[in-house]
Design a protein around this nucleic acid. Structure first.
Lengths: 228, 228
DNA sequence: TTGGCTAATATGTCTAGACATAATGCAAGT
DNA sequence: ACTTGCATTATGTCTAGACATATTAGCCAA
């Protein structure tokens, strides 16, 4: 039986877990491991590269591979298109466009996107419904300048979904907070003022520059689930 | 100038973005791309494998490589050790062990961990402080049976930190919710009852079986930040 | 028509060897 | 003492070729 890169990865991981190679320790070089396991160096490389991506080891040229001091655990979040998220829960999906106008963007928004203060942007407010009940209130500032033409009718296609398929996103960040429902949120979503809402705030940048800032206020009880 | 796998990845990505290869389309085989770019097939494979990991394409043997229908965006969360999280914010860290006792675990906990109902587990309640103020209230049920010996004194080392370095975690999940502060939370953290708190709930499994269930209630205003 | 076998094919992985690149540490010169 | 430069060395990447494996399409039989 011949060993594959996943076997090598598993065995190296086992030794790290077993503290044969404790945190901070330098592990043998690829050449040495290749000889020990009777495989080519490229195979060991594949295994160690995977472990490095997982954050278990840190690799530096010339310096070798060492066991990460604090094995930072990484979890992956798959950011869903809201429509599919809702359908995936077995509920009917619908949405209502509550606002669509040009307006000067507030300072926190322009600051995060790296745009000049007071820049006019497109403001969209969308209420996403699951099974006829409010699911997410989406508050979005959109940089019209970077959108490919023709721009769609956001009353017919949700911005959430159109952007994913039509703008090449380069980078972005997402932050979760727990906020009390604002007056507007309470009214639109039909919850008492001050209810604890899970809020996701996203900024995204595309090849053509900053694209959008969006705040998603989720209905009470919403869970954002991730695995690692 | 010779092309590397990152160049190949970038060019393939560009064509997908440019809709040369629209969502759902089959892209040319590795062999064909290798010839076009004048590189070895292994180099194209490296590039396409990376794109598949990023969720941009989907690959199946025999069926070929196709552009993902909805480019699911993935964000990565680095789950921090609370002490380092606090120190990283330039604040002093401390913690208080509020409870440490054996007790039958509640049903939701045993259910998530796959343990028998009413299983006695170790219950730990820890208040983490940042700059002397409550930062996170940690409520933990611990499966004593899978812990390596000697077990430490959790009044001296926080369970949060000790587990990371001493138990080999295999898998787990984490969920975020926004919950109103309970009576206990309000009292311990010094916030009004019902304040919106960002709550992280984690279960972790190790090689020896289920390890722990933990609920982290964060002080108001806490942000969990991720990039993609 | 349906079910299952078979051959074709694209990706997955491996080998052995080579060169590229980046960090390190030592040595030489200021 | 301090800096600069170079040799060393471990990882990063590439090539060319090979075999493994999963999946599909097509064919044949029940």
């Amino acid at each position: 039986m011949t060993l594959g890169w996943e076997d090598i990865r598993a065995e190296v991981l086992r030794r790290i877990r077993a503290r044969d190679w404790p945190p901070g320790a330098l592990i043998p070089g690829e050449e040495a491991l290749a000889e020990e396991f009777g495989v080519a160096r490229a195979t060991v490389n594949r295994a160690l590269t995977a472990l490095a991506e997982a954050g278990v080891v840190e690799r530096k040229k010339r310096a070798g591979t060492r066991v990460a001091e604090l094995p930072v655990r990484r979890a992956r979040l798959e950011i869903p298109v809201i429509r599919l998220d809702v359908l995936g829960r077995g509920l009917g999906y619908d949405f209502k466009l509550l606002a669509d106008r040009m307006a000067p963007a507030p300072v926190p928004v322009t600051a995060r996107l790296g745009l000049p203060e007071g820049q006019p942007m497109r403001y969209l407010e969308t209420l996403h419904l699951a099974g006829g009940r409010p699911y997410v209130l989406e508050t979005r500032w959109l940089n019209d300048a970077v959108l490919p033409l023709p721009a769609p009718d956001f009353a017919a296609v949700s911005a959430n979904e159109w952007l994913v398929t039509h703008v090449s996103l380069v980078s972005g960040d997402i932050a979760f907070t727990a906020d009390p429902a604002s007056l507007r949120e309470a009214e639109v979503m039909g919850v008492p003022l001050g209810t604890a809402l899970l809020v996701a705030e996203r900024t995204t940048h595309g090849t053509g520059g900053p694209v959008t800032w969006v705040r998603l206020a989720h209905a009470p009880g919403h869970r954002v689930q991730m695995v690692f």
